[in-house]
């Protein structure tokens, strides 16, 4: 089963994600107050949501609102690499939350910085780091067949 998606949808979501991550990073790096906690937990919820229940994700709903204005995409693309990229994002969101539990300012700041860089490159340069990793990791046999 191969799902096809509008390639602009994940980039649209990544733009919002990068905004949340940079705000959280700014706070984590300076006062390490409630803003970085809220940002980390929001990202955790969003990544868990997109990995396990992508069909009902709020980004999908928001993108559905703007899609009629930007027209049809030139091409659809396979959902697997972007979905894998979301799993990579989830890994860093979990890392940020572990940092919160440990009250470790540096873990939270570094995890949010990684999320920001990956989401920012995807949104504004169409460079999906997680997608690039997909084939490389497949080569090392990290996925079972059909994944």
């Amino acid at each position: 089963m191969t799902a096809l998606i509008d390639p602009r949808a994940p980039r649209f979501g990544a733009a919002i994600t990068s905004g949340i991550a940079i705000v959280g990073f700014a706070d984590a790096f300076t006062s390490f107050g409630p803003i970085s906690t809220v940002a980390s937990l929001t990202l955790l919820v969003l990544f868990v949501w997109s990995v396990f229940l992508p069909g009902s994700h709020p980004y999908k709903f928001l993108f559905g609102l703007i899609r009629p204005r930007i027209g049809e995409p030139k091409e659809l693309e396979d959902a697997r690499p972007p979905r894998f990229a979301q799993q990579v994002g989830l890994f860093f969101a979990i890392t940020a939350s572990v940092g919160l539990l440990l009250a470790s300012q540096s873990i939270v700041a570094i995890a949010l910085a990684f999320i920001f860089i990956a989401a920012f490159l995807n949104a504004f340069f169409n460079f999906c780091l997680g997608c690039q990793m997909y084939l490389v990791l497949k080569r090392f046999g990290l996925f079972s067949k059909g994944n």
Binding site: I22, F25, A26, F29, T30, A113, F116, I117, F120, L121
Partner: peptide
């Protein structure tokens, strides 16, 4: 400042 550095790096 760290925010500017991070955005600059990513850009």
């Amino acid at each position: 400042m760290p925010v500017i550095a991070l955005v600059a790096t990513a850009t």
